[in-house]
Amino acid sequence: MNPERLIRQIEFIREVDKLKTIRRQTLLTDGSRLENDAEHSWHLALMALVLGEYAGSSEIDLLHVIRMVLIHDLVEIDAGDTYCYDKAGYADKLQRETAVAERIFSLLPADQAAEIRSLWDEFEASKTPEARFANALDRLQPLMHNVATRGHMWKQHGIVQSQVVDRNRKIADGAPDLWTFARKLIEQAVNDGHLAP
């Protein structure tokens, strides 16, 4: 055992516990409170496990997807959650999050820091089949929460159908069948009066 390595790993684990305190602009499906980033990441990992058969590529490595979704929001510990429809917030989002990635991942021993940073970079670039599927899940999950809560957060922020379609069309890149499902959810939300046309 390398005591210095273990100390760094434990320091990282303690630091990322802060993810539980970062509130998202997504209600739990029962509408009782806002979801936190740790819950979101766990939910995506479970979605990857259950919905893997809908990935756009038959050669997808689901463990790789799960690892990506578990770390993709760690940067929000410092950067905070940027609401997906916040254009101003997205202007410097990557810059803010990249700076945090440097800080948080460098807490780990160099080999693990490089490995986890590469997962985060891969998710952000969304070029591999695994990253495209991970990003598809990252969009589908809050969409399902909005539908389950009768569009509560959409209404609160004045979001309309075209914004939801534009934001979520990336689902098709990683999971075409899930995009078909998502389109039906969006249409139903409009028909039910939970999303403005």
Rank of each mutant, 00 (worst) to 15 (best):
P109F: 05
E187D: 15
Y85K: 01
I104H: 03
E4T: 15
Q9N: 07
Q156A: 15
D111Q: 15
Q9M: 14
F133H: 00
S58A: 09
Q161E: 09
M153C: 06
R23V: 05
T29L: 08
H152W: 03
R14N: 15
G174S: 11
P197G: 03
P129Y: 08
D78G: 10
C84I: 06
V147N: 05
Q112C: 04
L94I: 06
L19Q: 04
I7S: 13
Y85C: 00
E59M: 02
A182S: 09
I186K: 02
H64I: 01
L44S: 06
L34E: 02
L62P: 00
R167M: 15
E122P: 07
V75S: 06
T149F: 14
A131R: 00
P197S: 08
R23S: 14
A196N: 07
Y85W: 06
H64S: 04
I116P: 03
M47L: 14
G31I: 08
A125W: 13
K184A: 15
I13M: 02
A196Y: 02
Q161D: 05
N191C: 13
R24M: 11
D86H: 01
S162G: 09
G151Y: 13
K93M: 12
D81T: 00
N2R: 08
Q141D: 11
R139M: 15
P109G: 00
L44N: 00
D111S: 12
W42P: 00
V50Y: 08
E11H: 02
D177P: 09
D86A: 06
A99D: 13
A79G: 04
E39R: 01
P176G: 07
F12K: 04
V100E: 10
S58N: 12
V165F: 13
R24D: 03
F12M: 09
R96C: 05
T26C: 13
I10T: 13
I66F: 09
H40V: 07
R33H: 02
D192E: 15
S57A: 11
Q161C: 12
E35G: 01
E130T: 10
P176V: 01
D192S: 15
Q163R: 02
N191V: 05
L27C: 04
T98N: 11
I186C: 05
V50W: 08
E11A: 11
